[in-house]
Design a binder for these strands. Structure first.
Lengths: 174, 174
DNA sequence: GGTGCTATATATAAGTC
DNA sequence: TGACTTATATATAGCAC
């Protein structure tokens, strides 16, 4: 879609590549939003910038609200999000999202979830250890970048949740 | 895009809605694939059918391989995928994905993961029970479907194939 | 649910600021 | 990067199997 036909292969020029990523990323987000609205489907979309040099963006667009849980070592859990080691997210009902930050009891459960997620993380780490080759992890630095991006993305989503929430409450039920 | 302009609001006719979902879902998948290929970006896409009558589809398109894990009550675990109660998915390295179905020991770990995931599912069910209002869920039936299908997503954001790797390392940082 | 067709609405490559 | 423009490539609504 453009003045020139584009072959679907990696764009060599880094600059063009980043531009394409930016444009197309937005396009996909729009489509995902439309799909969700038109069809009442839950759609999750995760996009990581090819370079990792910026947050790229992360979106979940759905008829339902979203809850994102970062997994950390349980002993470091204090509530709130920070230094994620791992990402886990779940789509929840709108109401759920509201309560999410409102009750202490909920926080207790959240903590429990955190612990469980951590166990899963550990289990998966074990599984990964079966991999005979870790040279495919290009750099620890980039991995850390991803971790940071995800955190920021989540913070955005937290804000976004509330806004979206209001919109949904004023729109006719689906 | 079509013979008639379409307002972006929920499509009332269930039949048309399903058709639109099917068509647009494929479209988004294609776009996500293109984005990944063109830009070398990791893209995760999760789509849940509005009816829940089929698993709809789930795709992660990226330089990485994908692993999808359906979570069921541990006692029903037999390996293989069927009757999902819960969905959990993870991006894994190619190598990981290969091993995935190759070792018994791996299966043991997978089972353990299944158990843990189930615990999380239960914890989330409890959390959800705090919801005082489900009127925003358009129908109980659909809500139940959502409970079954939607919810736990992205367990893992992991690394990359060597090819991807090399590409990244040889391109200038943006 | 799928496939195929066609007319149209959209997305977007390239270029400019 | 972001915003806009233009020309063109694509996606897809509506319909028929």
């Amino acid at each position: 879609m453009g003045r020139k036909r584009l072959l679907i292969k990696r764009i060599d020029n880094p600059c063009s590549r980043q531009i394409a990523y930016s444009k197309r990323g937005k396009g996909i987000l729009k489509k995902a939003t439309e799909l969700s609205t038109l069809c009442g489907a839950d759609v999750g979309l995760l996009m990581f910038s090819p370079t990792g040099s910026r947050i790229s963006f992360f979106v979940i667009w759905t008829g339902m609200m979203i809850s994102v849980v970062l997994v950390r070592k349980p002993e470091t859990f204090e509530g709130g999000f920070d230094v994620p080691l791992y990402l886990s997210l779940s789509l929840q009902t709108c109401t759920f999202a509201c309560l999410y930050t409102q009750t202490d009891e909920f926080m207790t459960l959240e903590r429990k979830l955190c612990e469980l997620n951590w166990k899963i993380y550990e289990a998966q780490e074990k599984m990964r250890s079966y991999s005979p080759d870790v040279s495919n992890i290009y750099s620890i630095a980039e991995a850390q970048h991803h971790q940071q991006f995800v955190t920021k993305a989540i913070q955005r989503i937290e804000k976004f949740k509330k806004t979206k929430l209001l919109e949904k409450e004023t729109s006719p039920s689906l």
